[in-house]
Simulated scan of single mutants.
Amino acid sequence: MRCHGKGRKDRCTPLNRPATTALRTWLQECGGQPSDPLFPTRRGTPLSADAVEHLVGRHAQNAPRPARR
C-alpha cells in the first residue's frame, strides 16, 4: 500500500496475507461501490486521519500481546 504522508514523503506499507484476506472479506460484506470509502463513518463519509489514529490506538491497547519466544 502506498501513501503520501506529511512532508511530501511517500510511504510503502506491505499488506500481508491476513490483512489482504480481511480487507477482501470486509469489501464483500459491506457491498459498497468502488467510489465508497473503505472505512466509512456512521453517516457514510470517510473517516478522518485523526479518527483512524484514535481507533487504531484504542484497539491496539486492547489487543492481546503476542507470546515472546
Rank of each mutant, 00 (worst) to 15 (best):
G5W: 13
G5K: 06
K6Q: 13
G7P: 01
R8M: 11
D10G: 06
D10V: 05
R11F: 12
C12V: 11
C12M: 12
C12G: 07
T13D: 12
T13Q: 14
N16Y: 03
P18T: 01
P18A: 06
A19D: 06
A19W: 00
T21S: 11
L23S: 05
L23F: 02
L23H: 01
T25R: 11
T25F: 06
W26N: 01
W26M: 00
L27G: 02
Q28I: 04
Q28T: 06
Q28E: 14
C30G: 07
C30T: 07
G32N: 07
G32W: 04
G32E: 04
G32F: 02
G32V: 00
Q33S: 08
P34D: 05
P34A: 08
S35E: 15
D36I: 00
P37W: 02
P37C: 05
F39I: 00
F39V: 00
P40F: 06
T41L: 09
T41V: 07
T41M: 09
T41E: 10
R42G: 13
G44H: 07
G44V: 04
L47P: 01
S48F: 09
S48G: 10
S48L: 11
A49D: 14
A49V: 10
D50V: 09
A51G: 10
E53V: 02
E53T: 05
H54A: 14
L55Y: 03
G57Y: 04
G57D: 04
R58G: 09
H59R: 15
H59M: 14
A60L: 11
A60H: 10
N62D: 11
P64Q: 11
P64M: 05
P64K: 08
R65C: 08
R65N: 14
A67L: 15
A67Y: 13
